[in-house]
Design a protein around this nucleic acid. Sequence first.
DNA 1: ACCTGAACACCGTTCAAGT
DNA 2: ACCTGAACACCGTTCAAGT
Lengths: 234, 234
Amino acid sequence: MTDTAQTAAATRPLSRGRIGEAAVAVADAEGIGAVSMRRIGQELGVEAMSLYNHVANKDAMLDAMVELVAAQLIAGTSSLDAPDPATDWRGALRARALAAREVMLRHRWAPGVLQTRTAMNLDLVRYYDGVVGVLRAGGFSNDLAHHSLHALGSRVVGFSQELFDPGAAADDASEEMLEAMAEHVPHLVGMLAEVAHDDPASTLGWCDDQSEFEFGLDVLLEGLERRRASTVVP
Amino acid sequence: MTDTAQTAAATRPLSRGRIGEAAVAVADAEGIGAVSMRRIGQELGVEAMSLYNHVANKDAMLDAMVELVAAQLIAGTSSLDAPDPATDWRGALRARALAAREVMLRHRWAPGVLQTRTAMNLDLVRYYDGVVGVLRAGGFSNDLAHHSLHALGSRVVGFSQELFDPGAAADDASEEMLEAMAEHVPHLVGMLAEVAHDDPASTLGWCDDQSEFEFGLDVLLEGLERRRASTVVP
DNA sequence: ACCTGAACACCGTTCAAGT
DNA sequence: ACCTGAACACCGTTCAAGT
C-alpha cells in the first residue's frame, strides 16, 4: 500500500478533492472513526501534516467529504425520470427522497457527519432548492413549503432519525431478557410478539428499514397534500 | 474547585450514578466535547483512572448519562395530566412528545449521544412502551402501532432531525452571499424572502424550532389517525 | 509553494503498585 | 476493594526547517 500510494502521490498532486475522496473511501470501508488526519495522509502516501496545505483542519476535511456526498445527491436527482411535479408533486418528491436514500445507504457515515456540519454547502442547498421547486410547482405557498421542509426533515435527503435501533438492541438482548422485562414493558413485548408472529422469518431484528422509511414518508406526503389542497382556493 | 471537590469525594463515595451526574452537568454546561474521563475525574476530585472502578469505559459512562435523561423522560410523562388515550390518543401522545421535548432542550447534547447508543436502556424502552400503550388504547393494531413508532421516529422523544440548520447557515451567510447564490437556488431564495417578509422581525435566522416541531408532529398524528380510522371495522 | 519531523497538549486505556 | 502514577498508543495542530 505504501508503495503504490507513494507513486500515486508522485503522479497526481495532492488536492482538497483527492483528500475528500480518500476520506470518503476510508469512511465507507471502515466507518468515520477510522478517519484521522494521520490515516488519510498515509492513504495518500504523504505525511499527515501535508494535508494542512490543502485543507484548513479536520473540520474542513469533513466538509470536503460532505461536498462529495452532496454532489452525488444532485447527480442522483438529475438522472431521474420522476413524475412532473406540476401534475404529481408527491410522486416527484417521493422519487427524489428514494434516490437520495440510495446515496446515503452507500455512505452510512454521512447522516451522522451531516448533523455536525454548519458550513454552507452549495450542492446541499441546491438539493433543497430542488425540493422547494417541486413543492412550488405542485401548488404550495412559500409558507407551506417552508413548514413542509421542516416536517420532512432529514427524510427529504434519504434517511430518517432512528433514535433507537430495535434490531441492534435485540441482537444484544436474549429472549429471556425480553421476558424478564415483560412486566415493565408489556405493550412493547406484546407488539413485538405479534409482529414477529406475522413475519416469523425476522424474529427479533424484525424492522424493514426501507419499508418503514417509505411508510413515514408517505404519511407525511399525504398530510402535506391535504394541507396544500385546503389552502388552494379554486 | 479541587479543594471542595476533594472534600466532596471524601464525603460521598464514587459511584456510577455520581459519575453520570457529573458528566451530564459538564455536558449541559460546556457540550459533549468537554466530557472526557480525565475531566470528569477532575470534576469529582479524583484521578481519571479511578472512574474505571465504577464504569467499564467511556462508552459505559455515556450510557450512564443516557440513563439519567431517560429517567427524566419517564418522570416527565408520569407527572403529566394529559388526555385519556382511550378518548383522545392524539392529545395524549402530543402531550408526551412535548414533555419529552422539554427534557431534551435541557440536555441538548442528548440527541446526538442517543443516536450513537445501542445498549438496551430500561427507562428508554419503558418510555417507548408508554407510547405503544397510548396507541393501543387509542385503537391501533399492533402492526400499525409498530409502523407509527417508526414514522414518528425521534419526534416521539422530543426532537426532530434537522439535517441542516438554516438559521446557523444563515448566520454565517451574508445577504450578499445569498444574492450571489440566487441564480443557483432561486426557489429557496424566493421562499426565504417571502417568509422573512411576512415576519420581518426574524430576517435570516427565521425558523421557530418549537412551532416547526409541532407542525411536523401534527401532520404525522393526523396521518396516523386517518390510517387507524380506516382499519377499524365498526 | 509545498512537504517534513519534532514537539505540544490532549485523548482512552492498561497495568503494576500502593492503601 | 478502591485509588494512583507511569506508561502506551493514539489524536489534532503548530512551528521551524527543509526543498
